[in-house]
Computed example of a mutant assay.
Amino acid sequence: MSQPSMIWSAVDFERDGKQVDYLRLPHSSDLSAYGWIPIPLIVIRNGTGPTLLLTAGTHGDEYEGQIALIRLVQELAAERVNGRVIVAPALNFPAVMAGRRVSPLDDGNLNRLFPGRAAGSPTQMLAHYVDSVLFPMADAVIDLHSGGRSLDYLPLALAHPGRTPEHAAHVRELIEAFGAPVSVLTDGSGGGGATTLYARAAERGIPALTTELGGGATLSPDGLAVAETGLRRVLAHYGIVPGMAETGPSGTRLMRSLGRAAAVYAPESGLFQPSVAVGARVTAGQEAGRIFFPDSPMREPVTLTFPASGMVSCRRFPTLTARGDCLFNLMDDC
Rank of each mutant, 00 (worst) to 15 (best):
N111P: 10
N109G: 05
V133W: 07
A217L: 09
A194N: 13
M1T: 13
H59K: 00
D325G: 13
S121N: 01
R253F: 15
V171F: 02
E64H: 03
G99M: 08
Y198K: 00
P274V: 09
G116I: 09
D61A: 07
L144I: 14
A157R: 01
L158Y: 12
I42S: 06
C314L: 13
G192T: 14
I44S: 04
L235M: 12
E14V: 04
P267C: 10
D222Q: 10
P155V: 07
M97H: 06
R232H: 14
D143I: 03
V102N: 03
H128I: 13
A95C: 07
T218I: 02
F13L: 09
V282R: 01
S313L: 12
T195C: 14
S189L: 04
T195K: 13
G192D: 10
S146L: 05
L41A: 13
L156S: 12
G99V: 07
Q74I: 03
T123F: 07
G188V: 08
T247L: 13
G60I: 07
N111H: 06
V264L: 00
L72I: 03
D333K: 09
L197T: 13
V87Y: 04
F178I: 10
Q74Y: 12
P4A: 12
N329K: 01
A90C: 11
G162A: 08
L219V: 10
H170K: 10
I206N: 01
D106C: 05
L231D: 11
V182Y: 14
G65N: 02
G251L: 04
E268A: 15
P267V: 15
T211M: 05
V96K: 01
L53C: 06
W8T: 15
V73N: 00
A263Q: 00
L174D: 10
G324N: 03
L72A: 07
V87A: 05
G162Q: 03
P301I: 15
T218Y: 02
H27Q: 12
M331F: 09
G324V: 15
A177T: 13
E300Q: 15
L174W: 06
A208L: 03
P40F: 04
I240N: 03
R233G: 11
F306Y: 11
G179M: 06
H237R: 12
G243D: 12
G65K: 01
L320H: 06
I142F: 09
S2L: 15
E228D: 11
G205I: 08
G60L: 05
Y63A: 02
T123Y: 07
P122F: 07
R232A: 15
L113S: 08
P104Y: 02
E176F: 12
S250R: 01
S183E: 07
L91S: 05
A98T: 08
M244L: 15
Y129V: 10
